[in-house]
Design a binder for these strands. Sequence first.
DNA 1: CCACTACAATTGAGTACGCAAGTAAATCTA
DNA 2: TAGATTTACTTGCGTACTCAATTGTAGTGG
Lengths: 159, 159
Amino acid sequence: MSAQVLSEQSSAVRAFVALVRSHAAVTRRLSVELTNDHGLTINDYEVLLRLARAPDRRMRRVDLAGEVLLTPSGITRLLDGLERAGFVERGTCESDRRVVYAVLTDAGLAKVREASATHVAQIDELFAARLDSRELARIADLMERLGDAAADDDCRPPE
Amino acid sequence: MSAQVLSEQSSAVRAFVALVRSHAAVTRRLSVELTNDHGLTINDYEVLLRLARAPDRRMRRVDLAGEVLLTPSGITRLLDGLERAGFVERGTCESDRRVVYAVLTDAGLAKVREASATHVAQIDELFAARLDSRELARIADLMERLGDAAADDDCRPPE
DNA sequence: CCACTACAATTGAGTACGCAAGTAAATCTA
DNA sequence: TAGATTTACTTGCGTACTCAATTGTAGTGG
């Protein structure tokens, strides 16, 4: 009868715990493969992928940070690594000399294609292990909305 | 026409990206509150909570690691912090002298109760921002299954 | 009873971040 | 057009982990 009150669980708490656990389990598995086979972290990969899809294969660092949800300093350090590896380069902006573009190199494009082959297959396999395609679409939708809610500043308390 | 192949997205990939993003967004928000108001990380809190619910408020470190999905060394370091703060103590095991129990102290129980008040409310608020209660139950269920799939060793390639 | 393997936990070294503070360029204000 | 604010980015420092190696204990087969 001591800690019993702590056992009451709202669906939100259940969902939160499941989010933390599933993230840990999924990323642990996938990042092992990505780092062993390709020398990339998950965020490295996400960044390369977004650059590959961006017009002119370039993006402002700030925008990149917003997409992968890293802080500006996190992006700086992540890109340091990708620069050292030769996968991205720095590009200056004519109209605003504060901004530094991250530009995907040919080597970077080759890398993300190479990594995609095994990585995407592994994601498919892992997610399909217990979820059918309808459930997959549903969970993707719900998690996107959850992420948007949490990333929005407007759900912050007023003060 | 260059990187176009990288734009094809399975539902699994969409779900994966949404998982990573929503996790980053949600944990960033919640951990700010937990660390500022209570000096705990999310994993600190999860560990204290599981100890509070465990019989005799004690658990083997290995089992704790399995529940919060940390490595053994991760648990050691996390518990170091909680010991220093006086929230857990070490307990020896009569029948197996390899194991060291993590035992929740009275101060630890008080702490987790205190933290729960605001933390649970914030989780509820954040998750309810864009998801109704049916959706919450659904996403919790789907994420639990996903986490189980990824934590299971039996979905590993044979070799 | 002794060697082997298996397991619980810890430790040293390394990494991927975050935060706070700083610089430099752009923009707004008076 | 000078000064103040905002924006883009970087840097120093701290932290929460991970992995690989190590110690000590338990079971197991000969």
